[in-house]
Computed example of a mutant assay.
Amino acid sequence: MLKKTILSLSLLMLMPSAQAHRQWLLPSSTQIDAKEAWVTIDGAVSENVFDFDTNALSLDNLDVIAPDGSQIKAEAAIKTKFRSSVDIKLPQKGTYKISQNAQSVMATYRLNGEEKRWRGTEEKMAQEIPADATDIKVSRTYSRLETYVTNDTANDTVLKATGTGLELVPLTNPTELFAQETTRFKVLLEGKPVPDSKVSVIAGGVRYRGVLNEITAVSDKDGIISIKWPFAGMYWLKAAYPQLPDMVDGKRPPMPEKRYSYAATVEVLLP
């Protein structure tokens, strides 16, 4: 019992001291070869990626782009405490992009001499911030979550940049990634390359490793990053623009007027 207690304490000491809540989409498989192809997508918010430990992520606004560029609908949506799930029928052969875009608004203001904080949607801001509030400062966050699935044979139609928001565009098909190989992505903001952008790469299974083992890739002058996958498994990629400033005297400087975030889930296969 004493040995088990010491081991448990050691693993806790190795865990990240301040874990953030992360949003992600998780496909049941990224490569499907079946007479009638389907995939299930789970969505959640959690401390450890791909662990169902905090809240479900709403999948009401999920976009599914088929290999020919058309949109199709997800089916059989359910939501529980820790996860949301949808089923998607894949009638075409090729690669599908499954994504969700969202916008949130944060504001600070002063009312009767006190500083107040507010968070919600663009539509509710005018209704819920008092008319006599002063020193109103607003920050808008645009977020994008993505994952990719291939039915039978991969193609690249859905890999094209949309030209809106922050994107991590794969330069090789993201359903054909292999351990110990290197993959390149291009970081774009509103369709333009973003140099010196830090992209975080985290493999699933943190609770069993006891350490985060985060990989950080930095984009070059053309916005391109290179990632060498250390082992097979599901990976979570995260980028943000601009990077949040460091804390000063225990306080973070004001948020920028616009902030963009991007996260993707990819599967890395055995070679």
Rank of each mutant, 00 (worst) to 15 (best):
M234I: 13
M247A: 13
L168P: 01
A131T: 14
K3N: 12
V201K: 02
V39M: 05
I136G: 03
T5G: 04
L189P: 04
D68P: 08
V266H: 02
D152Q: 15
V268A: 03
L90H: 02
P195G: 08
A131L: 12
T153H: 13
S17L: 15
I41R: 01
D196E: 14
E75M: 14
P256S: 06
P130A: 04
S84M: 13
L9D: 03
T80R: 15
K4W: 08
L14E: 13
L166Y: 04
L159Y: 07
S226P: 01
A263L: 07
D132W: 08
N61K: 14
T95Q: 04
P91R: 07
A240G: 15
K192S: 15
M1L: 10
P242N: 06
V86F: 04
S46E: 05
D196L: 11
R22A: 07
P130L: 05
K192F: 09
L59C: 06
V49Q: 06
T141G: 05
M1G: 10
G191M: 04
A240V: 15
R117F: 11
V266R: 01
T172A: 14
A74R: 04
T95P: 04
F50P: 00
D53Y: 09
V206F: 01
P193K: 07
K97E: 06
L171E: 05
D246Q: 13
I225W: 01
E123F: 10
L7N: 08
Y208T: 13
E257G: 11
R252P: 01
F178Y: 15
V105Y: 00
K97H: 12
A131S: 15
E214A: 11
P91W: 06
T147E: 02
T141M: 10
P91M: 03
D51H: 12
K192P: 02
R259E: 09
E190K: 14
P195Y: 10
R259K: 14
D135K: 11
V268H: 00
N101H: 11
A56R: 08
K81M: 11
K186E: 11
P193L: 08
D135A: 07
A240C: 11
T54N: 08
K186G: 03
K221F: 05
E176C: 03
S58R: 09
L59N: 03
S99D: 03
E146G: 04
G94T: 09
P27T: 05
R22F: 10
Q100F: 00
L9A: 10
Y148I: 03
V201W: 04
K238D: 05
L145G: 00
Y235G: 01
W24I: 03
